[in-house]
């Protein structure tokens, strides 16, 4: 009987609706968690797997030795490599293409690379203007690596102890 009265009282005073509205009212004055994207960014982990880059040794020589492990391990077959012997007897790639439309950003290429040449960077806000732009050529990959050398070196060093 008493329970019933309480229920009727609650029903008539719209208590549960007011309780719900109090939640939204509190959130109205709470600090916002929205981040204004281009000006500020959410924290990005050093392990982040964004766009790829090819790295160089400190003397400017490219690291990639065309062992094709990344090509073999890529689950989406996004990597195409052609290689050639250079005049100095070292083997280097003549073609290193990553098709970004195929790539699933699993990070296996970075994991497989024995010389830390191919890496995935923290960069995720990239765009291209034509379909051809989706294929990252060797030149483009090295360019990304050169442009972001500092960032790549820092993040890879930070994470190296876990690998």
């Amino acid at each position: 009987m008493f329970d019933k009265l309480i229920k009727i009282f609650k029903d008539f005073t719209l208590s549960e609706l007011l309780l719900g509205m109090s939640v939204t009212a509190k959130e109205l004055v709470n600090t916002k968690i929205t981040v204004q994207f281009p000006e500020e960014r959410t924290p990005i982990s050093p392990r982040f797997r964004g766009i790829h880059a090819l790295r160089r040794y400190p003397n400017g020589e490219e690291r990639c030795i065309a062992c094709k492990l990344c090509e073999a391990v890529c689950p989406a077959n996004a990597i195409t490599i052609e290689s050639e012997m250079r005049d100095d007897g070292t083997r280097r790639t003549t073609q290193y293409d990553i098709d970004l439309f195929k790539c699933i950003y699993c990070g296996f290429c970075e994991e497989a690379c024995p010389v830390d040449a191919i890496v995935e960077t923290q960069i995720f806000d990239y765009a291209f203007e034509s379909r051809e732009g989706s294929v990252l050529t060797k030149e483009r990959l090295l360019e990304i690596g050169d442009e972001n050398k500092k960032l790549i070196d820092k993040t890879k060093l930070e994470d190296s102890k876990y690998r």
Partner: peptide, 16 residues
């Protein structure tokens, strides 16, 4: 694959 990191990434300084 890897152990848990002992550092979390942080929000960086911005004008806003």
């Amino acid at each position: 694959y890897r152990d848990l990191p002992d550092k979390m990434p942080k929000y960086l300084k911005s004008k806003l």
